[in-house]
């Protein structure tokens, strides 16, 4: 197997894990909008406890993908950074302020005003980060970025990233995060034995899930009309994954309805994950369509092999530690302070 394909496969896994775990954390922050000003403290405790101390660990995946792109496909990295510096910078601002809002609210806010202020920062930043990350991915997928094969960019530096697909992806990403969070939180509420909260989150999850179903249909239509190259990839290669995503999404809704929340969580994760992997498969062998392909952007073979080997070596050390971290903090439920 070629090292570039292995590396891209690993990077796709990284993005998927980021979407599933980081996405749920962003989503919990998105829900702060509806809960920030009037929710009882008990409800917020559930959110904050579910996010818990592992939430910063999720950004490992983003860094991992960025470094993989930087080292393995430098011309694509260069083009993407030039074309998308505005949305990527805004996503970064969101990630930073999300952490700031969370930490300051938890440790430094006495008065209700301060708590509300930092809660609002947390909610806005949590929504902004997936919004602009989604927009960035959508801009790449749309094939409308005026990039050159050598990694240059000839489009508008401020507004070139705004395409119909990038705007759609921005909202889709926020919606997917909110859905994942709602489903996970329903399950957490049930595990915590809180019947009232379980009921509340179940309704929220159902509503968001139906909304995401509508949004998905709109997205497919948009792609067919506006991003032919990607649409072709979807219809010729990635259709089993899209089919799988639809099936998993329907299953998660059914499971929510029947109050089988672990099944719902698995279904929701599969639905979102299949969309991410499906987009990657549809994009292949392009990296930044229409001009930058895997072949035109990849680093020399030796570099790629060195990368693959170091990732495997790193994974051997990192994976047990990460699994242990998850087990420690997600396994049992310490009471919130």
């Amino acid at each position: 197997m070629e090292p570039d394909v292995i590396l891209l496969g690993v990077m796709t896994v990284g993005i998927t894990l980021y979407a599933l775990m980081g996405g749920a954390d962003f989503g919990a922050g998105v829900w702060e909008f509806s809960t920030a000003l009037r929710a009882p403290e008990r409800e917020r405790d559930l959110i904050y406890r579910a996010i818990g101390p592992v939430w910063e660990a999720n950004h490992v995946w983003l860094i991992f993908v960025v470094v993989g792109l930087f080292a393995g496909f430098p011309d694509a990295f260069s083009a993407i950074c030039r074309a998308l510096w505005v949305p990527l910078l805004l996503a970064l601002v969101g990630i930073v302020f999300r952490g700031v809002g969370f930490a300051f609210r938890s440790y430094a806010a006495d008065s209700l005003t301060e708590k509300t202020l930092w809660g609002a920062v947390f909610a806005f930043a949590s929504t902004g980060a997936p919004f602009f990350l989604g927009a960035s991915l959508g801009a790449i997928l749309s094939g409308e970025l005026e990039v050159t094969p050598a990694g240059g960019y000839t489009g508008n530096h401020l507004t070139g990233w705004v395409t119909s697909l990038s705007v759609f992806s921005a909202f889709f990403a926020v919606g997917a995060c909110a859905y994942l969070a709602a489903v996970y939180l329903t399950r957490e509420a049930q595990l915590a034995g809180d019947a009232a909260l379980t009921k509340k989150w179940r309704l929220r999850a159902l509503a968001t899930g139906l909304w995401m179903g509508v949004l998905s249909v709109v997205g497919l239509g948009l792609m067919a009309a506006d991003a032919q190259r990607l649409w072709e990839g979807f219809t010729t290669r990635a259709w089993p994954l899209i089919g799988g995503s639809v099936a998993a999404g329907c299953f998660s809704l059914w499971a929510l309805w029947r109050e089988r929340f672990t099944g719902a969580a698995i279904g929701a994760a599969l639905a979102v994950g299949s969309v991410v992997v499906g987009a990657a498969v549809a994009l292949y062998p392009d990296l930044v369509p229409p001009t930058i392909t895997i072949e035109s952007a990849r680093a020399p073979r030796e570099v790629l092999w060195a990368l693959v080997i170091s990732i495997v070596a790193g994974a051997v050390i990192l994976t047990p530690a990460l699994v242990y971290l998850m087990l420690l903090f997600k396994g049992r439920k310490p009471e919130a302070e």
Binding site: V96, V100, A103, F104, Y107, A108
Partner: peptide, 13 residues
Amino acid sequence: VLIAGTLVALRHL
């Protein structure tokens, strides 16, 4: 903003 926030948080702690 971050520096100001950090100072407030540290003083509070």
